[in-house]
């Protein structure tokens, strides 16, 4: 048996590898990662406050290779998601058109280790909102 952290995290990946990314029909995940960039690029000097934007993610990942997250951003035109501890922090961008019934989306992301996940929403009036959640990636195995 092998006790490397990577192998431990890889366990269970087979169970979820077939999962589709359940994107909201009105949102598009941006295939060009460089367009997601870093939080500073998206904010372009503006400040992000808190508001109705919610980011839902597990406190402790069941599998760091495929962590389910969802965002709900009433009134947003675009939401970007960053895994701040990953080598490439930008993980997703969702754009919502004027005909979108709701501004919500879900996907699964890969986390290199315990880190903060941040969502930033650009609102219709040009202001920004942000939400943050720490997701722990652990070896596990000793819960009683």
């Amino acid at each position: 048996m092998d006790f490397t952290r990577r192998d431990t995290l890889a366990l269970g990946a087979g169970a979820t590898a077939m999962a589709l990314l359940p994107l909201s029909a009105v949102a598009q995940a941006d295939p060009n990662a460089e367009l997601v960039g870093a939080p500073d690029e998206f904010l372009a000097g503006a400040d992000a406050g808190t508001g109705d934007l919610t980011l839902t993610a597990p406190e402790i990942a069941e599998n760091g290779n495929t962590v389910p997250i969802s965002i709900d951003a009433p009134g947003a035109v675009e939401v970007r998601v960053y895994a701040l501890g990953n080598p490439t922090p930008g993980v997703a961008a969702f754009r919502f058109g004027p005909l979108a019934g709701s501004q919500a989306a879900s996907t699964r992301i890969r986390l290199a280790g315990t880190q903060d996940v941040q969502a930033i929403a650009k609102m219709a009036d040009g202001s920004y909102q942000t939400a943050m959640k720490t997701v722990k990636v652990t070896i596990g195995g000793c819960g009683g």
Binding site: G12, A15, I60, T138, G141
Partner: peptide, 21 residues
């Protein structure tokens, strides 16, 4: 239910299930 079942116990025994708080 216990939120951290697939982490504290072997997830390969019940891969169909996910928990969390």
């Amino acid at each position: 239910a216990f939120p951290y079942m697939p982490i504290a116990n072997p997830s390969w025994m019940f891969p169909e299930y996910s928990f969390g708080i």
